[in-house]
Amino acid sequence: MSDNPWLDWTVELQSLAQAGLFYGRDDFDLERYERIRTIAAEMMAALSDLPIATVRGLFCNETGYQTPKLDTRAAIFDGDRILLVRERDGRWSLPGGWCDVNLSIGENTVKEAKEEAGLDVRAERLIALHDGGRRNHPRSAYGVTKAFVECTALGGAFTPNSETTDARYFALDELPELSAGKNTEEQIRLCLEAHRSPTWIPPFD
């Protein structure tokens, strides 16, 4: 559970409604499930200050049994400094994004590092699997599992792109404003702790 139970209940209502719409057969039940999903979208809009059209796009475009989305984050180091990329809103994050359906966690991490940081990397080992709803804020409108992966930079250079405007290495005592929905200071500290440990055992939620 997150620190806002109303968000948790709203996400659960949406999930139940989506499953009901997929597995239900009775027309009257389907109508009720659709109404429950609409109410859940309206609740999420009210709780998050997101426009209702945005929430409907997140809540109402999927079918089938709802499962968490997978987000990968690349932890790339230069000594004890970690690479962050600057998002379009000015905040910073580890390079990463949603895992494509045809890519593994490692492959997606490599792809995102290239797209957002301009670096060719090798995915070395898993650092952690986190439940985004418990660890990151604001709470997403859907479940998110976050995979943090330690990577070795092989070459390349940053160029501005459609997602990021800069890439730099930072020490822990000089971290810029972070995009907390993507990574927190606690998660970055965890990445550095793993980097320093040759016998790291990945924690998971």
Rank of each mutant, 00 (worst) to 15 (best):
P51T: 14
I105R: 07
R56T: 03
Y142W: 15
S93G: 13
I82H: 00
A141M: 08
L103T: 07
A45I: 02
Y33G: 01
D89Y: 04
R56W: 02
A46M: 12
T72S: 08
E116V: 09
R125D: 15
E112F: 01
A40Q: 04
G96T: 01
H130W: 13
D100Q: 05
G106A: 12
G106P: 04
N108K: 03
A74T: 01
T72Q: 11
T67G: 15
P138A: 15
L119Q: 15
F59I: 03
I39P: 01
K114L: 15
E34I: 00
G96D: 04
S93W: 06
L126H: 13
R91G: 04
D78K: 14
Q66H: 11
T54K: 12
L47T: 13
A41H: 00
G133T: 03
T72Y: 01
I127G: 00
L119H: 10
Y33P: 00
G57D: 06
E34S: 11
A53G: 06
H130D: 13
E116M: 06
G79D: 06
D120N: 14
F77H: 05
G96N: 04
N61K: 14
M44G: 13
S93Q: 13
M44H: 13
L50K: 09
D49E: 14
N108Q: 12
G118T: 02
T72A: 10
I105K: 03
D80T: 12
R86I: 01
C60E: 14
R125V: 11
R56I: 03
G132N: 10
R81W: 07
G79P: 00
R86E: 06
F59G: 01
R73V: 00
T67N: 13
C99Y: 05
K114N: 10
M44W: 15
L129C: 13
D71F: 06
G57L: 10
D80P: 06
E34N: 11
L30Y: 03
S48P: 03
V101T: 12
I76W: 02
W98L: 09
R91S: 15
D120E: 11
I52S: 08
G96K: 00
D89C: 07
V85Y: 00
P51D: 14
N136G: 08
A53W: 15
D80L: 08
A41N: 03
D89K: 09
L126G: 03
L50T: 02
D80Y: 04
A75I: 04
A45M: 09
Q66T: 15
G57V: 07
I52W: 02
A46D: 15
G57Y: 13
E115L: 08
T67S: 12
E87M: 15
A41S: 13
T109N: 03
C99A: 14
R135Y: 15
F59M: 09
E42C: 10
E34V: 03
P51W: 03
N136H: 09
T67C: 14
G57H: 06
I127H: 02
V55E: 00
G106H: 15
L129A: 02
G97K: 01
L58Y: 10
R134F: 02
G57W: 03
E87Y: 05
